[in-house]
Amino acid sequence: MRRSVAVALLCTGLLALAMAAGLLAGVKSLSLPTLLEVALGRGDAEARLILLELRLPRVVLGCLVGAALGIAGGIIQAATRNPLGDPGLLGINAGAGLAIVVGAGLLGLSGMGALLTLAAAGAALAALGVQSLAGLVQGSSAPLRLTLAGVAVGAMCMGLTQAIALADPERFDLVRNWRVGSLAGDAGLILPSLVPALGVGLVATALLAPRLNIAALGEERAASLGLSIGVTRGLALFVTVLLAGTATAAAGPVAFVGLAAPHAARRLAGADERAVLLNAGLIGAALIAAADALGRIAAAPAEIPVGVVTALLGAPILVLLVGGRRGVAR
C-alpha cells in the first residue's frame, strides 16, 4: 500500500512539473515567481491574462485529453491482453475523427454535444471493426493482428477524413491543425462540455478496474469467481470509446500517449489494474502537457501540434516495446 501511495505521489509530482512547464513556456516565457504571484491572486494584469485566460485552459484541456488517452490505452491493454493497445494505433481515434468530420463537414452538425456523440459512435465502430477484423485472422500473435488491422482501418479513416477536408479550402484550414492532434483550439469553449463525458468515463473506469484484475486470472477462473466476462468486455468497450472519442473530439487524433502511459504506469505500480489505470491517467496527462509545452518551445514563435510531437517521440517507444527482451513480436 505504501508503495502505491508513493507511486501515485511521484506521478502527481510529474504532472505538476509538466503543468508548470506548460504554463510558463511560450512566446512570452514567464518565471516561476510570476506564476506563484498570480496563483496567490496578485501579479500584474498582463501576466494574469496570459496565465489564467490563455494558458491555463489549454493546459487543463491537454491534461484531460492525456488522462483520457492514458486510461483508454490501459484499459485496451488489460482487456484485450495486447501490450500494443493504444487508441491511436488501433484506429479508434481515426474512426472518431472521421465521424466528426463527416458530421460537421458534410451533415453540418455543430455543438459540442453532437460532436461528442458522433466521436463516440465513430470510435465504437472503429473499435468493433478492428476487433472483428483481427479476430478473423488466425495463425499469428494477437498484438500483430490487432495492430495491423488497426493501422489499416486508421489509414482508411485518415484518408477519407483528409479527402473530405480537402474538398473545401476553408474547411481544410479549419481542420488541418485538428487533424494531426492539436490543443490550439479555443480551450475555454471546449472544456465545459468535455467535463461531463469524462466524468462518466472516470466513474465507469473505477467500476471496471477491479473487474479487470479478476479477468487477468484468465477467462475460466474469472468466470468461476462469478465475473461476467460479457459485462466486463462491454464495460471496457464503453469506457474506451467514451474516453478516446472525447479526447479526439477535443484535440484530434493523438497517438502513442495511450501506448506509453500505461506501460510506464505498469513498470512503476505493478500489476494491480486500479493503480495502473490511476497512474496511467496521471502520466498521460503529464505527457500531453509536456509535449504541448515542448511543441511551443521548440518551434517558437510557431508551434508544433501536440499530435506531431507525441508521434515523433512515441514511435521510438513502439520500436523499443516491439524489440525489447520481453518483446511482443514472436
Binding site: 494505433l89 495492430t147 515523433l312 513502439l318 520500436v319 513480436a329 514472436r330
Partner: peptide, 14 residues
Amino acid sequence: RARLILTGIAVGAF
C-alpha cells in the same frame, strides 16, 4: 518478420 512489420509501422508513423 512480425518485428520487422511492427518496426515498419513505427517508422512510418514517425
